[in-house]
Each structure stands twice: as structure tokens, then as C-alpha cells.
Design a protein around this nucleic acid. Structure first.
Lengths: 357, 357
DNA sequence: CTGTTAGCGCATTCAC
DNA sequence: GTGAATGCGCTAACAG
């Protein structure tokens, strides 16, 4: 079972010309007789010639393809960033391939090597929560493949990246909870391995400090982002002698899972517990009650990362980040207040419909 | 700015052996002295040799890579199918690259050609809603690249595919609405270009027929799946002289967008209008009220498609679907009943929390 | 304007 | 157990 592809040699033979001429005609090289070009293009079309990018990339050392690596895409965050990045890259004439890690470190390493072995021209990446060893990334750097990180950036690597103001955003989220009168604020934090988890956690701590609310470590749990854990940890919070009256969750899926637990326990949101998430996933608006959250400009993040990568790839001389500070762009977040912290109205207060029942 | 990769020639030179030996050592060929092999492997590791898959695929005509093409991934449906497929393919030793079309026909054609030009060994695909010309797919077939479709299958092509029982599922969904006493059931249908849209629509019509409910074409609107349209069409339904008391939506995002309109109009769900979606997206469970929907076994769909593709790729002789019927697997759906059709309880009826307010 | 040649990195003959 | 030679499809440098 072998695929049969037409090659420029096939075309050359049929036209009794050399493969170079075919190549020139096909690539739009100026020095080619119009009639010859026409003949070549017609034959190529009729025979469904498909350029062999393998051979091309192989001989040119350029593939015009970039890879995007994401740890997962079950929330809307990563897909949405990808769409933003892809738009920019396609406009710039690059092909885009996406690899998805399932939050597995091994898959991440394999995928980076896959992309390297396919000689992509650049990589946009957000690492998995398991990733503690970054050798596969420094490898890419050493080889000279431009890398741009977003969202999750390895902290001991000097790499270009796009982030949001995690610290300030968390601070602001907690400040919001304090301003609506909450005093006992729990935090379901992400894994310590993720820089943004730690930043958000610090924002939480410092907001408490600013308002003279004692920081109680028992109210902070770092977890591995698997939804089953949320149930356990949230129950734990509710079972405390003085349970929290508010929760700041590391992200929206966490917040939403926590809401389930709270509702199942017969408590009211936001009256008994106010909840704030992070990212403004698609679901944040849908869940009941609507989830207050720090919105991330996902599409912008993707576009920015793509533009940074383009710059890296087009640089005359490879940027050497072992001797030079890598650029980092920080994009703003925005607090979206919904019913999970400030109730606007009873959703079931409805006017009678017209017409038949 | 040129990436510098180590090649087997570099290694051969340093070890004063031939590149053939290096190649053999690297690929685990038996006929190689243990010491030589060890030396090669060590040097390769220390110099961070990265096999050039371009060269390899180029010379071997096999890339051990499969592509997955999806029209979009803003709902959880496609990502979830991808994860299922990827799991199976990785276990079978294949690399997986994903391409996303943004529902654009041009991007789809470009991406298919991209994958062909990279000589992937097989492709799993769901076409865009815009796709009416399937030449790019038949091209892949003619070249001999196995193709497996899922969800959206071109109807005039004989290709292997994985679908769900769209007709029966729609029938069942509408039957459910009828059984809870609805008599005036609207249907927000998908584009006519999609086979599953038409099947679901027919299921809707036939369910009405079975229960002797007259089919009213005014209650059916086909639309292009852009969420803005839902608002317009749903308002139109509500403004009818006798507005519907139920809605069957082509998919969950449509149902959820419709719910917004209904709620904004001050109507109650399900009392005034009962709503059923399709697919059981992540959001179906979260939205308020919970959305009744026909669940699709997304992960299974992905795994099944992957397994079918593996069979195609491993076939000794390429299956010629111009002379032979292509296999189609139909997976079952399951009706998930939630509050959008049958209300179980008031969610805000809560017991008093213990402890402090 | 066009043909010839070389070379990209690798596995795989065929020799020895 | 190892080396030399070949070819995969293409572009580019060099001749003409």
C-alpha cells in the first residue's frame, strides 16, 4: 500500500524539459518562458501534482511551518489562544500544526522532538503542569529554533513569553471579595510547579495583607488541577470550624467544580460563599450563578505570541537569550462581575409570557 | 539565522567511522559492534542529535504521522474527539498533528494539501460547514492516503467514517418533548450542507408524524451555526402568533444561545419553553437550567476513528473505495434529561448553612 | 531562457 | 561488523 505522488521529474519527462525548468515554473521563478510555464502548470494541475514539502524543507532547511504546543484543550482557554495565534501566522504565510499534551510531560517531550525532527521554523508553547525539567526547551533554543511561551512560562529559562498580570489580577480578584464584605477567603491554588499559580497565590496573600485580614494557611490548598480533587478540597473547606465565606479559585473550571460542591452542600452562592474564578472561560457566563472571574484576553495572547514568534523567526541573527534578556509581554486582565459574588436579580423573576401557556 | 542540527555525518566524522554504521547504531540494527553502538549512542546523546524526520520521511515515504482536521474547536466536542483519537494513535506509535479550520473551506483545502505535502500516513477529518466541493478529499484518496471521516461525512463520497445515529437521536429527542406534553415544537436546524443536520431534521419531522402532530415548516429554521443568528431566529419563533412550547436545537451551543434569548424575553424554561440540545457539551451541564441533550460518545468516536485509520494504514493493499463499500461505524447516543425539559427541583431551595453567616 | 550538477540526511543495498 | 554507493524530490549555482 504505497501512495503514489507525481513528482517534477514525471512532469519534466512528459514535457521533454528538465526538472529545473519545471521547478522554476512551479515556484514562479521569473526566468521561464510563458508557454513553458503554462504547459507545466496545466500538466501539474491535471495530474494533481502535490509538492513534496518533505523534500523541499529537507533541501531548503526551512519548512514555513510553526508548531503550537498546549498542555490540554478541554477548557476554552487554549483553543481560543490557538485560534488567535493561527490567524496571525496564516496571514504571514506559515502553516500551523497543533500538538496537545494531555498534561503529560512525556508527551510534551515527545512532541517537541517531533516538531524539531520535522524542522518546524518556530514553536509557541505552554508547558504541562508536570513539567519540571526544561531540557527539551533549552534544546530547541540551542539548536536555534525560536520559542515563544505563553501562560505557563518556565521561570528559570530566559525565553520570550506572553503572560497576563497574574499577580495584580489575583490581587484585584481578592480585593473585590474583600470589598463586598468577605473576611474569610479561601484559595484553591494551582500546582506550585506553575509560575502563574504562585503569582496568583501571592496576589491573594498580599491583598489580604493590604486590608489587614490575617493570612490563614489552612485556607489555601494547592492542587493538581484534576477536577476530582476539587470536590475533596472544597468539602474540606466547608467542614472547617469556621468555613470560608468566599473562594478565589485558580481558574474557572476549578471555580465551577467548587460551585457544584457548594450547591450540593445546600449553601447559597454568593450569600454563603462568594466565588471568583480566573480566565473567563466560555462556561463562566453559563454556569449558575454566573461566575465572577478575571477575564484573560485569550485571542490577544495568541496573536501577541504569534507576532513575537514571527519577529524571532525573521531576525537576521538568531537572538541569543543566553546573553540577552528575552522580551516578555504582559497583557491586562479584566474583572468581570457576575452573580457568584454580587447578585443582580433573581433569574426566575419573570413576567408572564404572552399567548398560550 | 540558521538552525544548527547535528547529523549522522558529524557523528561519523568524530568517531572515524562511516555514516552507515552510525545509522545502524542509531536505528538498532543488529549487525553492529556493541562498543561502536555504545560510542555512537553516547556521542549522539551528548551532542543532542535530533533525527531529521524530513530526510527520513523523504527517503522512506513514510512519516509515521497522522493528521487530524477539525472545523473548529470552540465547543468541547472536537477537542474531546481529538483526545480520544490521539490516545489510540500514540499507543500505536504514531505522531499526531492537529489542524483547525475555523470553519473556513479555504483553510481546509490548504490544510489537506499541507498534510499531503508533508506526506502524513493518514488523516482523520470532519469537514467545515462551508465545504461543498470535496475534491481535496478525493485527491487524498486517489493519491492513496487513508482518510477516515467523523461527525460530518461527505455524502457523495464513499469513505470510511464514524457517525452517531443522528436520525434516531433526533427522533428520540423530539419524542421526549412530545412525551412531556409539548405540541408546538420548533427546530433550529443546521446548514443543509451537513448530512447530520439533514438527518436530525428528518428525525424531528418523523417524530412529529408518529405522534400525529402536524409538521409546520414555519417552526423549522436552518441556519449557519453562527451564534448571532440564533438570537434573530429565536426571537422570530417567540414572536409568532402561536409561539412554540419547545425547541429542539441542532447542537448544544445553539440550545444555550437560544436559552439566553428565552430568558431575556422573560419566559421560563421549561415551563414556557422546553429545550433540547445535542452532543452533551461540557456546558450543557453547567448552563441554567441544565440542558437536556442527546449525549455523543465523543471519546469513543475519536478512538473508533483512530482504529479504523490504523486498519486502513496497515492494509497490505490500499482499500479501493471506488469499487468497494467503505465501512461506516454508527455509535449510539444517549438522552440526558436535565431541567431544561423536566424540572427536578428549585435549585435555590437550600437548607441554612451551619456556623457564621 | 534552459539544462546539468550538486547536495540536503538518511536507510539500505551491495561489497568486503 | 563495517564502508561505499545509491536514491528519495527538490532548489540553486553554474553553464550555456
Amino acid at each position: 500500500m504505497k501512495a503514489k505522488y507525481i513528482t517534477i521529474i514525471d512532469i519534466a519527462r512528459q514535457l521533454n524539459i528538465s526538472k529545473s525548468t519545471v521547478s522554476r515554473a512551479l515556484t514562479g521563478h521569473p526566468n521561464v518562458n510563458e508557454q513553458t510555464r503554462k504547459a507545466v502548470l496545466e500538466l501539474a494541475a491535471s495530474q494533481e501534482y502535490q509538492r513534496n514539502s518533505l523534500a523541499l524543507g529537507f533541501s531548503r532547511h526551512k519548512t514555513h511551518t510553526v508548531g503550537i504546543l498546549v498542555p490540554e484543550f478541554m477548557s476554552t482557554y487554549f483553543p481560543s489562544v490557538i485560534v488567535g495565534a493561527q490567524t496571525v501566522l496564516q496571514e504571514a504565510g506559515y502553516n500551523v500544526v497543533i500538538c496537545q499534551q494531555n498534561e503529560s510531560y512525556e508527551t510534551e517531550v515527545a512532541n517537541i522532538k517531533l516538531l524539531l525532527s520535522y524542522r518546524v521554523d518556530g514553536i509557541i508553547v505552554s508547558h504541562t503542569k508536570e513539567t519540571r525539567n526544561f531540557d527539551h526547551f533549552t534544546l530547541a533554543q540551542r539548536i536555534g529554533i525560536p520559542l515563544v511561551f505563553f501562560n505557563r512560562i518556565p521561570e528559570d529559562m530566559n525565553v520570550p513569553g506572553v503572560v497576563v498580570n497574574d499577580y495584580e489580577a489575583a490581587f484585584q480578584a481578592v480585593e473585590h471579595l474583600i470589598k463586598i464584605g468577605r473576611k474569610c477567603i479561601a484559595h484553591l491554588a494551582g500546582p506550585e510547579s506553575l509560575v502563574n499559580s504562585r503569582l496568583r497565590r501571592q496576589g491573594y496573600i498580599d491583598a489580604l495583607k493590604k486590608y489587614n485580614i490575617p493570612y490563614n494557611p489552612d485556607l489555601v490548598l494547592s492542587y493538581d488541577l484534576t477536577m476530582e480533587k476539587v470536590k475533596i478540597y472544597m468539602k474540606h473547606f466547608l467542614d472547617l470550624a469556621t468555613p470560608p465565606d468566599a473562594l478565589f479559585a485558580i481558574n474557572d473550571p476549578t471555580a465551577i467544580a467548587a460551585m457544584e460542591v457548594v450547591k450540593a452542600a445546600g449553601l447559597r452562592i454568593p450569600e454563603d460563599i462568594a466565588i471568583v474564578g480566573f480566565s473567563n472561560d466560555f462556561s463562566a457566563e453559563l454556569v449558575y450563578p454566573g461566575l465572577t472571574t478575571m477575564a484573560q484576553p485569550t485571542s490577544d495572547i495568541g496573536r501577541t505570541a504569534a507576532n513575537m514568534l514571527l519577529q524571532e523567526m525573521h531576525a537576521k541573527v538568531m537572538n541569543d537569550y543566553s546573553i540577552k534578556k528575552a522580551p516578555t509581554v504582559t497583557l491586562p486582565t479584566k474583572l468581570i462581575i457576575r452573580d457568584s459574588t454580587v447578585k443582580k436579580e433573581q433569574p426566575s423573576l419573570v413576567k408572564k409570557r404572552k399567548g398560550r401557556i
